[in-house]
Design a protein around this nucleic acid. Structure first.
Lengths: 120, 120
DNA sequence: ATTAGTGGTTACCATTAGGTTACTTGTATT
DNA sequence: AATACAAGTAACCTAATGGTAACCACTAAT
């Protein structure tokens, strides 16, 4: 059983909040996008970089490493030349996707227009 | 209808992703905690600051202002002395809470132990 | 000999989020 | 006369996040 203060009356440290903890993993600027781009298939590093051209390879490599560390993504290296590496979602990563889609729907209904307005 | 590239094949700007947009609102270090502490009741600024002692009043005021801006929180000012201000969740804010709880549960099952381990 | 393809790494820089401390306003209390 | 209360503001500082550009290893093709 893991500590949770999300329903407690006294928060002395944000990391006692399970939502904040979860955010610390998926809250990066590119993480939800990367997870969604991987989707149901295995995909190569270079292909991801094509689909998300605005992300630099440094940042992409970092994000993938973190996602791998937390067990959301599985990295498979093939010993070929030129090198080939494939990324795919783990069971844990896949189980997150429905929640991300709920967030997306909620955002589209509730705040999307305001954000877009604020940026123009 | 709002633009969404969350399911598209080409991401040129993270703000075209509705999940990223939603994160930009609730992804702050303290926002989910604040929303949860407000809960179903109206609560005063000072009371929030007591419940979350680790947040400074400057940051708390900022976060509340943003949440108000995006329509998740309603601020009511009473013209009394000393001043009294009450915050409560709007319908939109309340509708987000079930999703945050799903995130919390997902995190507890999937990543909490790893995060806690990494910090010790 | 040079270039291309792949999956990165390294060094460096800019922006932002968040934190600290002190201060304000107006009345009431000691 | 000084202090407390409530709800913030203002000025300043630091650490983390993310961005840029160059480079690497290895082989095959031109």
């Amino acid at each position: 059983m893991v500590t949770t203060n999300f329903n407690s009356r006294f928060i002395d440290n944000p990391l006692n909040c399970p939502v904040t903890r979860t955010m610390s993993i998926i809250g990066g600027k590119w993480k939800p996008i990367i997870l969604n781009c991987i989707g149901e298939r295995a995909i190569r590093f270079g292909k991801l970089n094509q689909i998300i051209p605005a992300i630099s390879n440094k940042v992409l490599a970092n994000e993938l490493k973190e996602l791998e560390n937390f067990g959301l993504v599985k990295r498979t290296e093939f010993l070929e030349l030129p090198p080939r590496v494939e990324y795919e979602l783990t069971t844990s990563g896949k189980s997150l996707m429905p929640i991300l889609h709920e967030l997306a729907n909620w955002g589209n209904k509730n705040v999307a227009k305001k954000i877009i307005k604020e940026l123009s």
